[in-house]
Design a protein around this nucleic acid. Structure first.
Lengths: 344, 344
DNA sequence: TTGTAGGCGTTATCAG
DNA sequence: CTGATAACGCCTACAA
């Protein structure tokens, strides 16, 4: 009730109020040192009535730990990320850690600036879900000895703790499904060139073709940037081909939507005239108007695993710990794929 | 190159390396005190080559400022929030502040726990976008004198800085549009009972009816919880009515999708047999398969304004500053509304 | 069992 | 212009 502006109560005042030394208050409150039941009671009582709350700030300086970790994502607005963020946050919450969220907008300078800033704040660790594959910052982090985990993005050269999904296998499943349906001309819309995940998905495409001894046709691969618009554009290019594909695999759901939108405009029926498979399984894909067949990663788990791995690194028990976690995906069969029609 | 583990370089080491006192290093680096050009040069040089970066942690303790603000949202996975989060973060980024993101899952205890935690960390301010209207925590915050802004959620009693959208007017526009199309039996799917925003939207519905002297029929109002499923369920209830509505306004897009999904299942054509309007304009609503007519709030701006207001409060210039910002919405006309058909 | 004395890394103050 | 000193709030030896 009468606690007034209690945000400024310090350990000293509690000490005075309970007639003991600050160190005793600390011992009583943290339960670490020897304190008689009686004094502990008095201290707790005083702390309570003054509304004392120890400053994590001061404690952090003293203990060299901030109980905060940073998460760098390209853009939370991209519907793939929220689940990942939740995964991270849910784990941190359980362990009483806080999450500092940073959006890098696929921008190297912004990312670098954020990194500097976070390092200055002496966060306990970092999760990088946005880094370009060739970022020098990653090397620096490693040099500085800051615990960090790369999330679905590898660095070209550095060997770092990594949590990711099976990108190659995911696209592989999609391709196998189409191949089994008899498709032979299958196009692929690639993701941003600077991410390892995009590269791995592209690999999945190539290897599936190889398995079936189908020649890789560069005309059937378009570069996108994960936006709906880029999928739309890519699809238009595919249709303009002399021999258009009968199916398309997209590196994410957004671009698949774009492609489907174009097919709709052009009066091309999906799936009877064109099969489409996406990647990410964002919630939209399940809506009855869309029902996109797509590869579903374990997004929440991805974030959760990254957070868990990071906390272990922070705890310093890294030695006896696997540094790489690859989570499998699932192919969600819905309504955008059908058997290939014999080519005319 | 040879900077070794530079994360531990302190101001003292820089002082030694450049042959001056720590305070002089501080002055040179922050540019606050008088320092001769010559010494400044030496200091910068030394700092540079040692890779010195001042600890914000220590600085925070000393300056009583953390350059971090907390943002409490119900759930970033709800597609309404990412844009808000981005708005907040973009403004903070410009001002060199960091964002601590917390998901409360509409859970009071979790929210309270987070709040305690954040207060312990001495964040500079808080943005509350998830608080229940009757939360006691808000009163406590106020008592503690921590700068904070409520985002699209008011407290029942406390007068606090507030940034929100025109919920009432938003639903009002939707209603007026339907009314103008000749609809007279219009149903409303309400949002979670504990939020002021939901209440305001409900008010918008009532008042629009009043303006047209149409009686308020409780059977035409269903309580939802912002999920697709709850919209689906609500729609089913409406159709079961002896005199079903000819149009539905939903307190958010998700529930509108749920309703539309049900209509699709039941073979009820939208918009010819049933008009639907949502609220939020999440990106999905614009997809060609959906084209939901909906009320578009300025989500990014909402977050940005909240952050700006908060930073002003933090800066202590609150006195001469409006404490309440209400952003207008826009009705986005798409393909889910049509003139009412004469009642049979 | 309790208290005293540093020190975590900065910066503000003030004397030199 | 520069440097010693103290203080931000807490915790951990170590001494009493």
């Amino acid at each position: 009730m009468s606690n007034a502006v209690r945000s400024k109560i310090t350990i000293k005042q509690v000490a005075e109020a309970s007639g003991v030394a600050p160190s005793t208050v600390s011992n009583a409150l943290t339960g670490k040192g020897y304190v008689s039941e009686e004094t502990r009671g008095r201290v707790l009582q005083a702390a309570q009535s003054l509304g004392y709350r120890a400053s994590s700030l001061a404690r952090s300086l003293r203990l060299q730990q901030t109980w905060s970790v940073g998460l760098l994502v390209a853009d939370v607005s991209n519907p793939f990320f929220p689940a990942v963020v939740r995964g991270v946050e849910d784990v941190l919450w359980r362990r009483q850690y806080n999450l500092v969220l940073c959006n890098t907008d696929y921008n190297k300078e912004k990312e670098a600036a954020y990194l500097r800033h976070l390092l200055d704040k002496r966060l306990d660790g970092l999760i990088l879900a946005s880094t370009a594959a060739d970022s020098d910052d990653v090397l620096e982090l490693q040099a500085e000895g800051v615990p960090f985990v790369m999330l679905n993005r590898r660095h070209v050269s550095a060997r770092t703790p990594y949590v990711g999904m099976d990108n190659e296998g995911g696209v592989g499943m999609a391709m196998d499904h189409l191949l089994a349906l008899g498709h032979r001309r299958i196009a692929f819309i690639k993701g941003r060139a600077d991410s390892s995940a995009a590269e791995e998905r592209h690999q999945g495409y190539r290897q599936a073709l190889e398995r079936e001894a189908i020649a890789y046709d560069p005309a059937l691969v378009m570069q996108g940037d994960y936006t709906i618009e880029s999928g739309h554009a890519a699809a238009a290019r595919f249709l303009a081909l002399r021999r258009p594909p009968t199916a398309i695999v997209s590196a994410n759901d957004f671009m698949a939507f774009g492609a489907m939108a174009l097919f709709k405009e052009r009066g091309l029926a999906v799936p009877s005239e064109m099969s489409v498979i996406g990647f990410d399984d964002i919630f939209v894909s399940a809506l009855p108007w869309i029902e996109l067949t797509t590869v579903r990663p374990q997004s929440w788990q991805l974030g959760a695993s990254a957070a868990e791995l990071l906390l272990e690194l922070v705890g310093g028990r890294e030695a006896n710990r696997r540094r790489e976690i690859i989570l499998p995906n699932e192919l969600v069969l819905r309504a955008t794929t059908a058997p290939a029609r014999p080519e005319r």
